[in-house]
């Protein structure tokens, strides 16, 4: 509203037009800039500043890099960072699954309409509900272990074995979110030139050859987009699942940075240390984000 009033005011007063014209862009930009600066950048600066102060007895005192040293020395935070590394390594799998399924739907396997709806269904469930469902399914005396027992395979403590739990949580996260990526892939397929597929068929290409030499190159922009969004999703929205499914355990093996931040601030009453951990997470996101932007830009040039 202030912007439109300002615009009307400047057009009415023609005599002082040049000055008003010079000011107009600033005035028009001001609300957006103030919102970003006041509600985004300034709190960020405050948070970073806060991470250099102490907790408890040293509340409010400047402590330099102490909190960051504490973080580096904390095996839990190191586990959280290692798990972030693991997520990056698992990223190709998380992208390949919706990619492959979308390909099958595009190639019209029998029942593809049904699968299209079913695959998207988990994407509308909240992580808490998904976590609760899988808590039941993956319980030690739950249905999955009963099924495995029927096949003669010993029970696996899916959420209680530190070597298995993180994969169980990531697996459930992929299950819960791949529907969105699938839709993006299907949209990408809509732009695919079907004459290329026909040509491949005429040339006698097998299915793997068609996927590798025709579909993947044509969809490179879509694949990159899905990579970026999936990575962001994995780094920022797994809190709910971790909270409900494992509480960071067993043995702290499923800690992620955001869960660590929450524990330090809410349970351990160490807000400054939590700020330092948030800043570290922010830096990780910044590096990952910049890397992805540069990859996207390079891909854009190729086109």
């Amino acid at each position: 509203m202030p912007a439109s009033t300002a615009g009307a005011a400047s057009s009415r007063r023609n005599r002082r037009g040049s000055r008003a014209e010079r000011l107009a862009p600033l005035v028009l930009l001001a609300p957006a800039v103030l919102v970003i600066a006041g509600l985004r950048l300034w709190p960020l600066v405050l948070g970073i500043n806060f991470s250099f102060t102490g907790d408890g007895d040293r509340n409010g005192l400047a402590v330099g890099f102490d909190n960051y040293l504490t973080l580096l020395g904390d095996p839990l935070f190191r586990t959280a960072l290692r798990n972030v590394g693991l997520l990056v390594l698992l990223l190709p799998v998380a992208v390949a699954i919706p990619g492959l399924l979308a390909t099958f739907i595009y190639l019209k396997v029998p029942g593809h309409r049904f699968y299209r709806g079913v695959y998207f269904f988990p994407a509308v469930l909240s992580p808490v509900i998904v976590g609760a469902i899988f808590n039941l399914l993956l319980a030690f005396d739950g249905p999955l272990n009963a099924l495995l027992g029927g096949l003669g395979i010993g029970p696996v403590d899916w959420l209680g074995d530190p070597d298995v739990a993180i994969f169980a949580v990531v697996g459930v996260h992929v299950w819960a979110t791949f529907g969105m990526a699938l839709v993006v892939f299907l949209a990408g397929f809509a732009t695919l030139d079907s004459s290329l597929l026909d040509a491949a068929k005429v040339d006698g290409a097998s299915l793997p050859q068609t996927i590798w030499h025709v579909i993947v190159p044509s969809l490179s922009r879509t694949i990159q987009f899905v990579f970026v969004t999936t990575m962001i999703g994995m780094l920022t929205s797994m809190f709910g699942l971790v909270y409900v499914m494992t509480s960071g355990g067993p043995e702290g093996s499923t800690y992620l940075p955001e869960y660590y931040v929450w524990i330090q601030q809410g349970q351990m009453n160490q807000p400054a240390l939590a700020s330092a951990a948030s800043t570290a997470l922010f830096l990780i996101m910044l590096v990952v984000g910049l890397a992805q932007i540069s990859i996207l830009r390079r891909a854009g040039k190729e086109d």
Partner: peptide, 12 residues
């Protein structure tokens, strides 16, 4: 009871 490390005290 089995699977203690994956069983929640509250309320399982």
């Amino acid at each position: 009871t089995d699977g203690a490390n994956s069983t929640a005290m509250f309320n399982d």
